[in-house]
Design a protein around this nucleic acid. Structure first.
Lengths: 80, 80, 80, 80
DNA sequence: CTGCCATTTTACCGGC
DNA sequence: GCCGGTAAAATGGCAG
């Protein structure tokens, strides 16, 4: 029964299990993050503000990456 | 036939047609945008760079909005 | 800096501003669409099902056998 | 500025950095998952169908009548 | 035709 | 417990 309707069942199962394992780990991390927020809230911080700050910091680093990408493109264009 | 299975058919149809009309207009604008890019390309500009520039400008304005949101939140928190 | 690369900078700026203007309008329409969905939701319709209906209507001459999927969804929606 | 609001700023920074670190790890896992899908695609599997399978397996005791939808999709996939 | 990017859709989380 | 908004996933479209 290695093939059903032309599908390599074992291979498929293997891929799916790898993905499921990784998603479990991902969910665990999501849980950890929630805990940290919760802990911060307990320490008197405002979760909403924290999320906003983190978002802003991420935006800034995205800005920097984007700027670098543009410079790269320019360099390549001038070099070519 | 104003109701089928408890569904107000005419009302539903009306909503759907409004949405479809708006989406048509949206698609028309997407077409306009593509034309401008195309025109710019014809004038010798690099579309990829243009997209990057526009993205960066948008990020900057998002940054500003986000910063304002944080200040708002702080103000509300301090005022409360 | 109006003269870097000849008059190109001004030309580029003009293209970019045209695009940004068009994208603003596009976003405004997206907002209008969201509002209609919201209104429909308030009138008791199932937004998810509406989206599928609209998608189907767009297919038209395309593979209409997907209608089965919509019907299934309806059944589920009506049954729930 | 370490003393604004007492020691609070440093405490806040610590929480935020913990969260950012965890989110980085989460993103890394998301990347791993994408790679597995990509590998599966290279092996000839249909990613869209795989996603649905995984979704179904997660439901388990939940409304399993959705299995019909998956089966429909399979039929369509096998037919195409 | 393939990979990448934007948009759209779904799912989650905090607030009320 | 529900709703609204916000972040993640997934699909579709465009450029190369």
């Amino acid at each position: 029964m290695a093939e059903v309707g032309g599908v390599a069942v074992d291979r498929l199962r293997s891929f799916i299990e790898r993905i499921e394992r990784l998603e479990e780990e991902k969910q665990a991390l999501a849980g950890d993050i929630r805990e940290v927020y919760s802990e911060a809230k307990g320490a008197g911080f405002d979760i909403k503000v924290m999320r906003q700050l983190i978002k802003l910091r991420k935006m800034d680093s995205d800005d920097r990456s984007q700027m670098e990408a543009i410079l790269d493109t320019y360099e390549r264009a001038l070099g070519g």
